[in-house]
């Protein structure tokens, strides 16, 4: 699951003089629908934007495994225990696919997965806003599968024709698995919605808590909100097709009717579909809070990073023990 997030204070890339002829050939290729491969010539701006996008996407999958993982051993039935394990495993698997794609792009800079992990731990590599949020009840496990993944599917399918071949192929695999994730989430939610008073209560409470994070998921509608936005670059280079706001509207289109059909409400009395404008009207979430969250100042940022850090440091001996020379392969 994923979306591109920005905090507005990303390091600016130094202007790089590009070979104009190569640049034009490159643009002609992507405009003709060709796919760019890892060892093809590409503008530095393209490479750097992709590294940022895909490493953030990949690391968000890895960090995204953690909130659901909190409920994995606790899942209430054998079947749910198995289902959520398979789902969290997929998130790790998606991280694997995406980090491999990012790693190949970083090769010219001599960077590896180790650097990505270190960048995450020292705060240089950001992860998605939703994964900084707490998961307080079992209903949150359902909410992440249903609406958070729903939002993720919306933004990922939007990139299924991405101009960068390895990313496009990884997304193809990921989106196929996301169909299972969506149904896994729906199954948990459906049982709660049709369940006891207690179950309905934790479900509504969960939705109330997740609502602002879900709106934030797609990022600000323009750079004016948070100070910077890479969405235009991504559209120019044919990585994605739609703007943040278009994706958010599409998400509300697909999911709000379902939310209401389960007898649930969202914590915003102004939410409605404006027939004349042809779009959903909603109260803006607090974008300052969003900026804080993705700067690792969210409610669970520190704890989640700590988990990753311990797992990374604590297993270092294993990786050191098996570096190829040591075992003579």
């Amino acid at each position: 699951m994923y979306n591109y997030v920005e905090d507005g204070d990303s390091k600016t890339t130094a202007y790089v003089e590009e070979d104009q002829e190569k640049y034009e050939q490159f643009m002609a290729r992507i405009e003709a629908g060709e796919k760019i491969e890892a060892d093809d010539w590409m503008p530095t701006e393209y490479r750097q934007a992709l590294i940022k996008l895909i490493s953030m996407h990949g690391i968000s999958e890895i960090m995204g495994a953690l909130p659901e993982k909190e409920w994995t051993p606790k899942a209430p039935t054998l079947r749910r225990k198995l289902g959520i394990m398979a789902k969290v495993q997929d998130e790790m698997g998606h991280g694997q696919l995406l980090l491999r794609v990012a790693e190949d792009l970083m090769k010219p800079y001599g960077k590896t997965r180790e650097n990505l992990m270190e960048d995450l731990l020292n705060g240089d590599l950001k992860f998605h806003n939703v994964f900084h949020m707490p998961t307080k009840t079992w209903a949150d496990a359902g909410m992440v599968g249903w609406l958070v993944d729903g939002a993720a599917i919306m933004s990922q399918t939007n990139m299924l024709d991405a101009s960068y071949g390895p990313y496009q192929r990884a997304l193809q695999r990921i989106c196929q698995e996301e169909v299972f994730h969506a149904q896994h989430g729906e199954a948990i939610i459906m049982a709660l919605a049709e369940g006891t008073d207690y179950q309905r209560e934790i479900l509504q409470e969960s939705l109330n808590r997740w609502w602002p994070a879900l709106l934030m998921f797609f990022g600000p509608s323009s750079a004016a909100t948070t100070g910077s936005s890479k969405q235009d670059i991504m559209i120019k280079y044919r990585v994605r097709k739609s703007t943040n706001e278009e994706l958010r509207q599409a998400f509300l289109d697909k999911y709000l009717p379902r939310v209401f059909s389960l007898g649930l409400t969202v914590p915003d009395e102004t939410v409605h579909y404006d027939e004349k404008e042809g779009k959903w009207i909603y109260q803006q979430p607090d974008w300052n809070e969003f900026k804080q969250i993705i700067r690792n100042k969210g409610p669970r940022s520190k704890e989640r990073l700590r988990l990753r850090e311990i797992a990374y440091e604590n297993n270092r001996w294993v990786r050191q023990a098996l570096v190829p020379e040591t075992i003579g392969s």
Binding site: E103, T112, R113, E114, R316, Q320, L322, V323, P324, E325
Partner: peptide, 9 residues
């Protein structure tokens, strides 16, 4: 040896 050598493609 370098720990990063653990990661062979």
């Amino acid at each position: 040896d370098k720990e990063s050598d653990f990661y062979q493609i």
